[in-house]
Amino acid sequence: MSAADSIASPRLRLKNAPGAAVLCLGAGLVGGILTNLVQGWLPGAWNNLANSGAVWTMFAFAAGVAFAHRTEGHRGPAAAGALAEVGLVVGYYGYAEFGRGGMGSLTFPLLWLSMACVAGPLFGVAGAWSRRATRPWRRYVALGALGGLFGSEGLHYWLGLGYLPQAVVCAALACGLPLLLGRTWKERGLSLAVAIPASFVTYQVLYGLLDAVSG
């Protein structure tokens, strides 16, 4: 089994759509609650790593990997990724509302829910591409985009917040994930080549949007 396959359960054999939907949504709900809990356990600025859009997007990517060889076309992985991301948002903010002191304004829950409906399908498809794409460039783009998410967070920690240790961790993940999940050295190298510009583009777009909303 390759490293990429190991991030998705090899026992997933659900063939009916309702069962698969419940599984993806449930995994997202549990993941959202856990990231909320871990955020409270990590010290200082390190708690930001639990509340990470890149970490959340790994759930959508894993859902796409899980469904890569079990459905035809892109609709299955896209739906799986979307459900996982929506579950994460609902689980995270649901626990914040009922398990902590309240989630506060609806602005950020609604913003993250909107982003989940975009990032979930995209990275669900990316996960599927990383496993079954017949065109090699799709695998490079999929793995590079995943690395680019962590790279963009690293840039945010470094340039926006001044948290150098957290930036180094994200940079290591940005480089390490394409190396770990790639199947050949050519694939790893080209995926890294995609991850570098993807990091800067995602940083400009994503954090520009967040700054506009929060401002």
Rank of each mutant, 00 (worst) to 15 (best):
S9G: 09
Y140Q: 12
R11K: 08
W158F: 13
G81L: 04
R183I: 03
H74N: 15
Y203T: 07
K186E: 14
P43M: 10
G87P: 01
V205G: 05
P18E: 11
A171G: 08
A68Q: 09
V125S: 00
Y93I: 03
L23V: 03
L34R: 04
Y93R: 02
S130V: 02
R75N: 13
L210P: 07
V125C: 01
V86C: 11
G26M: 00
A17P: 06
L159T: 01
A133W: 02
F59V: 09
F200D: 03
G44P: 13
W129I: 06
G162D: 05
H74M: 14
I196R: 05
A78F: 00
A54D: 13
L173T: 08
G144N: 15
G148H: 12
P43C: 09
G120S: 08
P10Y: 03
V86I: 14
S191R: 06
P10Q: 09
G73F: 00
I7L: 10
L159Q: 11
R70I: 02
L88M: 15
S52Q: 04
L111I: 09
V65D: 08
A78E: 07
G144R: 12
G215L: 09
F98P: 08
A195K: 05
W129E: 04
A4Y: 01
P165D: 13
E153C: 02
R138D: 08
A62Y: 10
Y207E: 00
A167K: 00
Q204L: 15
A84G: 11
S130F: 01
P109W: 05
M103C: 07
Y207W: 05
T107R: 12
L122A: 11
L113C: 07
P178A: 04
V205C: 05
W46P: 05
K186S: 15
I7E: 10
F67V: 11
F123G: 05
G154A: 03
L209W: 09
V38I: 15
A62H: 10
G120D: 11
P109I: 02
A68E: 07
A145S: 15
V169A: 09
S191I: 11
G127E: 02
E97C: 05
T35P: 01
G81E: 08
R132P: 03
G91R: 07
A212H: 12
W185E: 15
M1L: 03
Q166P: 10
A198T: 09
C170D: 13
V125G: 01
A21D: 02
L34W: 03
V30A: 06
W158V: 13
R132G: 08
H69Q: 13
G104F: 01
V65S: 12
Y163D: 12
V30C: 01
H156G: 07
R183P: 04
P10N: 03
A60M: 05
L122N: 02
Q39N: 11
L29V: 00
R100V: 14
Y203F: 15
G40V: 07
I196H: 01
A119Y: 13
R139I: 12
A54T: 15
G76Y: 11
